[in-house]
Design a protein around this nucleic acid. Structure first.
Lengths: 133, 133
DNA sequence: TCAATAATAGTAATTGTTACTATTATTATA
DNA sequence: TATAATAATAGTAACAATTACTATTATTGA
């Protein structure tokens, strides 16, 4: 295990990630934090997100060609909006994941230990027509 | 719609894709075809795979940071091997996909029209210990 | 057969991500 | 509290997967 020393940047990244209901990409986090951390580096965001994942404080969720990050680590389904590209949680019954894994096992000659359940659609914000001021 | 003219390369790419039980990446296809098509260009593989997908003759399946391609276009689950990175079909009951989509709808305020069901595990070939000759 | 033009090979450009390096910040200890 | 060891940073370069560009070649309808 690598030594991990505290850093203000990592705390800020973790806090921002926990705060949000969507699951931002490294880039989105970077721009969200730039305001209060003008000197922040994109590499720092990537490195710290990696460390948070290793430490079990976050998980990577593959999006549409980009990696998203989620501060909730237990496996659960997500939705990616075709329109804005944002990723959200889908709160299906929590046993679904385990059930689907067990259900699939006899159909594969080998071992299954992971399941990515990613829906695609149009989020509420994008479905709503733009307000005309 | 763009005009599509026949080409030997596209036919070869499509045939190779249909032939294989795994779902190769553009790169893997490129190297598989290089033997009989020494002048083949990687860009040509990408471009033609894109066209085949647009034409409904193939589908993209996001893998682990790389795009895989599948000549079977109806939605169905896949397995990605953690060890060799290859992607295979998982022949679960075909109605599962539609059912999971329907099941999830009431849990999302917006529209759902797509579902990626991607298992992870160790394939039979990788699970087997290497033969000692 | 031939002219119009889509497709190609080869290369350059883009994008998301990781690696490298000199400098700065953190922390355990004196 | 001061300090020394060293992890973390900012900034930049490198990288890998993919797309775009361009001069040349192949296909196809007349």
């Amino acid at each position: 295990m690598k030594p991990v020393r505290r850093s203000q940047q990592r705390d800020a990244i973790h806090k921002e990630l926990q705060m949000r209901r969507d699951h931002p990409t490294a880039d989105e986090l970077y721009f969200a934090l730039k305001d209060h951390w003008p000197a922040l580096s994109l590499g720092t965001v990537y490195r710290n997100l990696g460390q948070l994942c290793e430490a079990g404080l976050a998980q990577r969720v593959p999006g549409n060609g980009v990696e998203h990050f989620d501060a909730t680590v237990h496996p659960h389904p997500h939705v990616v909006c075709h329109c804005c590209g944002r990723m959200f949680d889908l709160h299906l019954p929590s046993e679904l994941h385990t059930e689907l894994l067990k259900q699939a096992e006899p159909f594969f000659e080998g071992k299954l230990d992971e399941l990515l359940l990613r829906y695609g659609g149009i989020c509420a914000a994008c479905a709503k027509p733009a307000a005309t001021p």
